[in-house]
């Protein structure tokens, strides 16, 4: 079974690249909160719940939205679409915020809406809720971007769990340091190899994933 990357979105260092096109860059934005809000507004995504998400979920959600805007998965059964994401800091960014709210016993006001994001896989939940995706999913944690882990894990899901499409990639964030690469992986024999915007699909290989994250 040949798997291909039919769409991708790479967000880092104040820029957003979708399918080889630079769609956002603003060197004057200093922090992640302002950056991601600017991208959200530019992309005209009308989803008020976005503002309630933690930073990690905002990053992953927005990258996934842009991937799916280029190449929707609405033609597949919801059970046949999976999501496999990874990072190195897990949900540490939000864990720190939660810890700050509970460390002083005399001023102890944990926020329920912060607490619910103290797991990295919540970002997958946000993507699935918005896009009605119900297939297999996993959030993997590794020290650095591990293309081999993703290719092997996602390949296994296609083979054994009947996936026909999968959002797959890296969503890393800690403070104002962030990077997200989300790809859409599909079977070569049931999808077109070129998107409506002219992006030619890539093989879903370790080498190609590494190139995407290193050369954008």
């Amino acid at each position: 079974m040949e798997l291909i990357v039919t769409s991708y979105c790479h967000i880092h260092e104040k820029k957003v690249v979708i399918n080889d096109r630079l769609v956002f860059y603003n060197e004057n934005i200093l922090n992640f909160a302002d950056f991601i809000k600017s991208v959200y507004k530019q992309e005209e995504i009308n989803y008020p719940k976005f503002y309630k998400m933690d930073s990690l979920s905002k990053l992953g959600f927005l990258a996934a939205e842009m991937v799916l805007k280029e190449k929707p998965v609405t033609g597949y059964d919801s059970d046949a679409v999976g999501v496999v994401l990874s990072n190195s800091s897990s949900s540490l960014d939000t864990d720190i915020i939660h810890n700050d709210a509970i460390k002083d016993r005399t001023n102890y006001f944990p926020s329920p809406s912060v607490f619910v994001y103290t797991l990295p896989n919540i970002v997958i939940g946000e993507i699935c809720i918005k896009n009605k995706i119900k297939g297999e999913n996993a959030f993997l944690v590794s020290e650095v971007f591990d293309g081999k882990l993703l290719v092997n894990y996602v390949g296994g899901l296609f083979l054994r769990f009947g996936l026909e499409a999968c959002l797959c990639g890296w969503v890393e964030l800690l403070g104002n340091k962030y990077e997200s690469l989300i790809t859409l992986v599909e079977k070569a024999d049931i999808t077109s190899r070129e998107s409506a915007t002219g992006f030619k699909s890539l093989p879903f290989t370790i080498k190609d994933l590494n190139q995407l994250i290193e050369h954008n």
């Binding site: 006001f109 944990p110 926020s111 329920p112 809406s113 619910v116």
Partner: peptide, 13 residues
């Protein structure tokens, strides 16, 4: 429902 919990915290805080 999470907002409801936040409102409870708001009243207390």
């Amino acid at each position: 429902s999470i907002d409801a919990l936040e409102l409870i915290v708001l009243l207390e805080k």
